[in-house]
Design a protein around this nucleic acid. Structure first.
Lengths: 226, 226
DNA sequence: CCTATTCTACCGACCGGTCATTAAGCCGCT
DNA sequence: AGCGGCTTAATGACCGGTCGGTAGAATAGG
């Protein structure tokens, strides 16, 4: 049992993060199953064996990526939306923040949404619970808005919530940053479309300053994190 | 060049169709890569080898499933929407038909949307072209509607089209037929939500009689079809 | 300051297993 | 007898994961 503990070097951390991000990118492109550990090793200039110095296993890697983006979701989107009092404003903030997250972290978000079957059975419930918490919050926010209107025909909050989710998740499948439309514009348009589907007279999209995703705060930390 | 053509027997055809549909179901549940030929053989009561009497290969199977649902899309959704003259009505018909298709054929639709990476490079362009044609038609239908309004801020037709697509595709991920909401209801609500996002004063959802998907007309035909 | 030891970061070979695909042959029906 | 419909068995590719080993940097001892 060594008494000396080496302080964590900056480089270790940077290397690990680099691996997580590159892995997320390639997994998002090719799919989890179709991406081999060799593929991942190659793009971070390691051999497969070397990769296992940083990564516990393929399943753990997937779980780590999902946790990374779930942290962002809770800290930078949900928490901020919770601060709002007015239901309309709250929903608008929530939606804008969520769209921004999808734009800022398309790879991880894509994986979170589309690769749940690849999760280890031991991890799955934890991820599902956190996803459910978000869906619940979104649905409640929608209900609060719908209650102040008398729409005919009645809109089922569950249908509404999932429709909005689908709309936002779809962004990851087609939006490329180099296209003609700016990220801020996209956030605005998608948010407005969703709100108009729900609210008769929606507020304008909130100021983007509060919705910018803060990557640094939620990255995976330490070796074999997650 | 044979002069005699064996007429297609009912049984061959029925068995093949059964295989396609069961395969679509299980692939949609577990994902294409995670579904082995053994899995598919098992649920249709064959051995892996026996399956190859009906199927040319795994890639061809995927391609066949996609073609099956693309045929439905073109024959039962696009064609009918094209008949409408009024832009608002046309868009409403198109959306309702598309939602209905997603509800009627969730497995194949899920595969069409989410398993494109698994396609053989030789097949991919053909599938992409047909998907693009649908997206184009949807976008044009949206443009025709938007042109009659003066919305501020301007809605990008591309953003609008893809948002609507995402919304509808999302249905497949959460809607279970045994839930409290009826399929007709769901078609109505999703269509209305999408239209409200686009149109100030949308028409009501069209009569469902014209939008019921006709499976028999677009199934894969013959041995090793596709 | 020099040497011995330990630790970090990584390599390359390899293993057990799974998978898609194919070949050869068997069985029952006509 | 012959063929359609199927089974059994084998093959080769690939994959996730393990392991022994090692160059070199860091640390400790004298």
């Amino acid at each position: 049992m060594p008494t000396y503990q080496k302080p964590p070097t900056v480089n270790d951390d940077a290397r690990a993060i680099h691996i997580y991000r590159e892995a997320a990118r390639i997994i998002s492109e090719k799919g989890f199953d179709a991406t081999s550990m060799g593929d991942i090793a190659e793009i971070v200039d390691l051999t497969k064996g070397g990769l296992y110095y940083y990564i516990k296993g393929k399943k753990a890697l997937l779980y780590a990526i999902m946790n990374f983006v779930l942290n962002l979701l809770e800290e930078d989107v949900i928490a901020i939306a919770r601060e709002g009092d007015d239901p309309d404003e709250r929903l608008a903030t929530l939606l804008a923040g969520y769209v921004r997250l999808v734009i800022d972290e398309p790879s991880s978000m894509n994986i979170l949404v589309n690769e749940e079957e690849g999760l280890d059975a031991a991890y799955r419930p934890k991820v599902m619970e956190r996803k459910r918490a978000f869906t619940d919050f979104l649905r409640e926010s929608i209900v609060a808005v719908l209650e102040r209107q008398d729409r005919i025909p009645k809109l089922d909050p569950n249908v509404a919530a999932h429709s909005v989710l689908g709309m936002v998740h779809g962004v990851v499948l087609w939006y490329k940053n180099d296209s003609t439309i700016e990220p801020d514009d996209l956030v605005n348009q998608v948010t407005q479309m969703a709100l108009r589907g729900l609210i008769v007279d929606p507020p304008s999209t909130p100021d983007p300053k509060v919705t910018r995703t803060d990557v640094e705060r939620s990255r995976p930390r330490g070796r074999h994190a997650a």
